[in-house]
Simulated assay, not measured.
Amino acid sequence: MTTSLPEWFVEALNTEPEERQVLVDGCHVAYRAWGDGDGPPVVLVHGGGANASWWDHIAPALAADRRVIAVDLSGHGDSGRRDAYDLRLWADEVLAASDDANLVSPVAVGHSLGGLVALDMATRDVVPALTIVVDSAITDAARREWLWMRRITAKPVVHYTDRNQLLERFTPTPPDAANRPYIVEHIAARSITLATEGWRWKLDPGIFARPVSDALDLARVQGRVVVLQAERGTARTPFSKAELEILGPDATVAVVPDSGHHVMVDQPEALIDLVRQHVSAYDAARF
């Protein structure tokens, strides 16, 4: 158990978010909201198997002068479950939560699966003018590498009588030596729930069963795209020239040093700074 926490982390977690939900296609979608400034609003989208709490230590810093929300996609966190999941429906949920929170043209920031959801949002008629993708499997090579995640679907839901035993089993997938224990501990505590049969993970294993053909059409993505790759994540599968051309001439690709796939767990300060920089640049370019 972590005994000494960084001051910035404690301050972030002491910033209580608003807990809200919206009904989307018959399913309750939960989201959290911080801040109320007039800067460009931001919507944060977590990765597959994660939840909005992965942004708890990131969102308050971004919300100093703007409205920020973090959404629990269906099948994740405190949102409801569905019989089947796909990118477009998850994007519908994020757009609905953004509308419910009165966000006008929000900047979309998505991690891993959430980055694909954010890019799907950018294919719509009303799209984010800026999409920031954090270590998402966009390239063909990265997609092939991440198909192993689908093996999770074969694992049955296990219940535990001992809460701490379940917490101790929590490890970000894939694990990385740079994972900060105090962030992992916070996320773990927000990722479990007490059911009738005992303690279990909040996520629905069915989220990993979406069809492989449920691919994103990058050619339809509009607006400016910023891709932040983790050094030990998708940076190992660099973009081809053709893939960069599809993202558009204004696309930016940068690598976050000394980070595994879960950048907000490994290098949270760097992620906050990078998102701030790109949102500020986008805001300045609007005028």
Rank of each mutant, 00 (worst) to 15 (best):
I69L: 07
A270P: 07
V126G: 01
W90L: 04
P41M: 09
E243Q: 10
G260N: 04
W201V: 11
L95T: 03
V10G: 05
A235W: 08
I272A: 12
Q267P: 01
I272D: 14
V227K: 04
W54G: 14
P257A: 05
L87M: 13
E18D: 13
S213N: 08
G260M: 10
E245T: 11
I58M: 10
I69P: 01
T15Q: 12
L167W: 13
L23I: 13
P257F: 03
L228H: 09
V24Q: 06
G37R: 08
H261F: 02
A118F: 00
P156M: 05
H76Q: 14
D100L: 00
I192G: 05
A30I: 00
A230Q: 08
R67C: 01
D100A: 10
L87E: 01
D72G: 02
N164R: 15
L203G: 06
V71E: 00
A12W: 00
S136C: 13
P40C: 11
Y282R: 11
V126K: 00
E7L: 03
L147F: 08
A129E: 09
A195F: 07
H261I: 05
D38K: 15
D204L: 09
A195L: 09
D204N: 14
G77Y: 04
F208R: 03
L194R: 15
I246H: 10
V225N: 10
R210T: 06
W54L: 14
V127W: 14
P268D: 07
V275H: 05
